[in-house]
Amino acid sequence: MLSAGERFDGYVVDAAVGHGGSAAVYRVHDADNPARVRALKILDDRRNLAEVARLRREFDFAHALDHPHIVKTYERGPGWLTMELISGGAIARLPTIGARLGALSQIADALDHTHNHAIVHCDVKPANILIDSHGNRAVLIDFGVAVALRDDICRRPAQVEASLPYSAPELLTGHAPAEATDVYALACTAVELVTGAPPFPYDSKMGLIGAHLYEKPPRPSREHDWLPRAFDSIIAKALAKAPSDRYQSCREFVALIVRALQ
């Protein structure tokens, strides 16, 4: 772990922001230009080749996409990268359903932009959607398990790298992801942000896998009487087991959710 005041490759550490998995994130500033603030992500010393490859993908995919709601990456070195600092926390910290849906609309636009560049994020979830300090701008982060469709059209993941509560059935059965994979994960995210829990709130790995593969989509309006039944049907289509049965775009899906809850 780095301490405040330490230097790292031309940057000065201000504070630790967080630590999770195999990496730590710090708020840093440029040693020659203190006004230039960044987030510095560094892999642990016990890093393995898979973690290094994931960090490289995280940098390369985000760097290739220019969109106001996709995190900007700046520099990369052996086991580290710098990116813009988003300091408002994760989307779940927004206090109202309306604010969360507004943020989801921004993320839907970012995902459609990503898909237009033949990239699938593959790990959409509330923790990967950050909000700026003013609460007005949502930002999609962590492209570490993203897939470029042009390069990986036949890619069959050996294991699920995405987060299980938000994993589409095709990921769990070893099929190549597609744009609809992100639609499914965005729908799981929307359910959690609206109701407080993902659509299949199982604690066990096998329970989650079984639910994504075989259970019908939930009907949240039965548990939350303030939700219209239209919300159930919109979610059901987005959570269809077959990718071809889901919405054609993330924007279409979120627009319908917003309209149903207005």
Rank of each mutant, 00 (worst) to 15 (best):
M1R: 03
S3C: 03
R7G: 08
D9N: 05
G10L: 06
V12R: 15
D14R: 14
A15S: 15
G18A: 02
G20N: 12
G21Q: 03
A23N: 08
V25G: 02
Y26Q: 15
H29C: 13
D30W: 05
A31G: 10
P34G: 06
A35D: 12
A35L: 05
R36W: 12
R38E: 11
I42N: 11
L43E: 04
R46P: 05
N48K: 05
L49V: 11
L49Y: 02
R54T: 14
R57K: 01
F61S: 10
D66T: 04
H67R: 06
P68C: 06
V71T: 11
V71Q: 14
K72D: 07
K72T: 07
T73D: 01
R76Q: 15
G77P: 07
G79L: 06
M83Y: 11
E84K: 13
E84W: 09
I86G: 11
S87P: 04
S87G: 15
G88T: 06
G89I: 03
G89P: 00
A90N: 03
A90W: 00
P95I: 06
I97P: 04
G98S: 10
A99C: 03
R100G: 13
L104Y: 05
Q106W: 09
I107E: 10
D109V: 08
L111D: 09
L111S: 12
L111A: 09
H113F: 07
H113D: 02
H113R: 12
T114N: 13
H115V: 04
N116G: 15
H117E: 04
H121P: 07
V124M: 08
V124E: 08
V124F: 08
K125L: 07
P126Y: 01
A127C: 01
A127F: 01
A127T: 10
I131V: 12
I131H: 08
H134Y: 03
V139W: 13
I141H: 15
G144Y: 03
A148M: 02
L149N: 00
L149I: 11
D151W: 05
D151R: 04
I153E: 05
C154I: 14
R156H: 04
R156L: 03
P157W: 03
P157C: 10
Q159H: 09
V160Q: 14
S163F: 00
L164S: 14
P165L: 06
P165Q: 12
Y166M: 09
A168K: 00
P169S: 12
L171W: 08
H175I: 02
H175G: 00
A180G: 04
D182V: 00
V183K: 00
C188T: 06
A190C: 09
E192L: 13
P199F: 10
F200P: 06
F200V: 01
F200H: 11
P201H: 10
Y202G: 07
D203A: 14
K205M: 13
L213K: 00
E215G: 09
E223L: 09
H224L: 15
D225C: 06
D225W: 04
L227K: 01
A230L: 11
F231E: 00
D232N: 06
S233R: 13
I234H: 07
I234A: 05
A238S: 00
A240N: 00
A240K: 02
A240H: 01
A242M: 14
P243R: 15
S244A: 15
D245E: 13
R246N: 07
Y247L: 15
Q248S: 09
C250F: 06
E252S: 12
E252I: 11
A255L: 11
